[in-house]
């Protein structure tokens, strides 16, 4: 589904990603773990197309197309979804209006007609249940005044509504209590199909107890230094990141 080859990216002239290689196939769940500052969030932002990040080398193919050539909104319409680590507040724009606009933009892009209001509301009801999101939140402004947990659940709710192909969860577990974590994970697991792929970015292993990955990659200093299966996450949890740092800090770039 997505193939990342030798991806280098920098922010303000400082290189953060130094040659990422990764292939994710439909139906797979990949976890990317790493210490703070290893480049995890940069990777998700680069894939989503955030302006401040400059790709200096490498290529990314998404469903056979050159992802890096696309505007952020085109990437979204092509089926790439980023669940933000810090979802932004948009005052005055109701959640429901926002989602309706986004969904219809995508449908237009796919050559489909806009969704009928009735069907849309039914879909909203159905998907809200999935993440146990209070119906009232739909009428509030996007993320405004939401608690940390509500914001994260709202991200998964949007994901459910927009039905993307590739979902990138950027530290979705940060700031979540154990119940919220279960709800979010439950949502993700329910939405999982053989056509969809997930990249789960996290600092801790605990999310991976709920969303079980097929592959685990360790990101350090802007590169994937180690890959394995879910056992690698457990190993990492036991040893801590210091072990990794020691092992790889002197590896030449």
């Amino acid at each position: 589904m997505i193939t990342i080859k030798n991806l280098h990216a920098s922010v303000d002239g400082k290189e953060i990603l130094r040659g990422i290689n990764l292939e994710v196939k439909a139906g797979e769940i990949h976890a990317i773990m790493g210490p703070n500052g290893s480049g995890k969030s940069t990777l998700s932002n680069v894939l989503a197309g955030k302006q401040d990040y400059e790709v200096t080398e490498g290529e990314v193919t998404f469903n056979g197309k050159n992802l890096l050539d696309m505007e952020p909104d085109v990437r979204a319409k092509e089926g790439l979804f980023l669940a933000f680590q810090y979802p932004v507040e948009i005052p005055g724009v109701s959640n429901i209006n926002f989602l309706k606009t986004a969904l219809n933009e995508k449908r237009t892009y796919e050559g489909k007609s806009s969704m009928e209001a009735k069907d849309f509301l039914a879909l909203v009801k159905e998907k809200q249940k999935l993440v146990e999101l209070d119906g009232k939140l739909a009428n509030r402004s996007v993320n405004e005044g939401f608690s940390g947990g509500e914001k994260k659940r709202n991200e998964i709710f949007q994901m459910a509504m927009l039905d993307p192909k590739l979902c990138i969860l950027d530290e979705t577990d940060s700031g979540l209590d154990i119940d919220a974590l279960r709800v979010v994970a439950n949502g993700v697991n329910t939405l999982k199909t053989k056509d969809k792929a997930y990249i789960v970015i996290t600092h801790y292993q605990r999310l991976l107890d709920h969303i079980v990955p097929d592959f685990v990659h360790i990101l350090y200093n802007g590169r994937i230094v180690k890959s394995g299966t879910k056992e690698l996450a457990l190993e990492l949890e036991a040893k801590g990141y210091d072990e990794i740092k020691k092992e790889f800090e002197n590896t030449p770039v």
């Binding site: 989503a48 302006q51 909104d73 990437r75 979804f81 948009i90 209006n97 989602l99």
Partner: peptide
């Protein structure tokens, strides 16, 4: 805010309008 809207599939004009 602009990036968030774009990530959900809205082009710049639509995002600004919203």
């Amino acid at each position: 805010q602009l990036f968030y809207c774009k990530q959900r599939g809205l082009d710049t004009e639509k995002a600004v309008g919203l």
